[in-house]
Simulated assay, not measured.
Amino acid sequence: MPDIVWEDPYCAESSNCFRVGTDAEGNAYIAVAGQEDAYLTDTREALRTLIRDIKAGKADHLL
C-alpha cells in the first residue's frame, strides 16, 4: 500500500464524507472517510480537474 497523506474529511450537508490524499510519487487519492483502504487513484492534475468540474456544477446531473 502506498504511503498516503490524507487530508481532513470533507463532509457536505447530510451526505457521505470523503477524503483526498497524496503520496510522494505525485499521485492523488480519493476515498470515502473511514474506507481509505478502498480508494481511487490518479494523477494530482486529474484529481484537481475533477474537483474543479464538480465545483463548476458539471456533475450535478449525477446527483
Score class of each variant (00 low, 15 high):
Y29K: 05
P2G: 07
C11Q: 15
G21N: 12
M1C: 06
K55C: 09
T49Q: 14
A24W: 13
T43K: 00
A59E: 08
K55H: 11
G21W: 07
E36I: 11
A28C: 15
H61E: 03
L62P: 04
D53E: 13
D42N: 04
V20W: 10
N16S: 03
R48W: 12
C17H: 11
E25N: 04
G26D: 05
I4W: 01
R44E: 07
A28P: 12
K58M: 15
A31H: 05
C11V: 08
A56N: 14
D42P: 02
Y39W: 10
R44S: 06
R19E: 13
N16L: 14
E13F: 03
I30Q: 12
A33Q: 14
L63Y: 09
E7G: 01
K55V: 02
S14I: 05
R52W: 03
P2V: 01
A12P: 06
D60K: 11
S14N: 09
S15K: 09
K58P: 07
A33L: 04
W6I: 08
A38S: 12
M1Y: 08
T22W: 11
A59V: 02
A38K: 03
G34M: 00
E7L: 06
D8I: 01
F18H: 09
Q35W: 14
E7K: 15
A56D: 14
L47N: 03
D60G: 13
L40K: 13
V20R: 12
A28N: 11
N16K: 06
D37K: 02
A31L: 12
D53S: 03
A46R: 01
D3S: 10
G26L: 04
L40Q: 08
E25P: 01
A33V: 00
V32L: 02
A56F: 12
A12E: 14
Y29W: 04
G34E: 03
R44W: 02
C11S: 04
P9C: 03
Y10T: 07
Q35Y: 10
F18G: 06
S15V: 10
A24H: 13
C11R: 15
E13S: 13
D53Y: 09
V20L: 15
T43V: 02
R19P: 03
L40C: 11
V20A: 09
T41W: 09
L62G: 04
R44L: 04
A33I: 07
I54M: 07
Y29F: 15
Q35G: 11
T22I: 10
M1F: 14
W6N: 13
A59S: 08
W6F: 01
D37L: 10
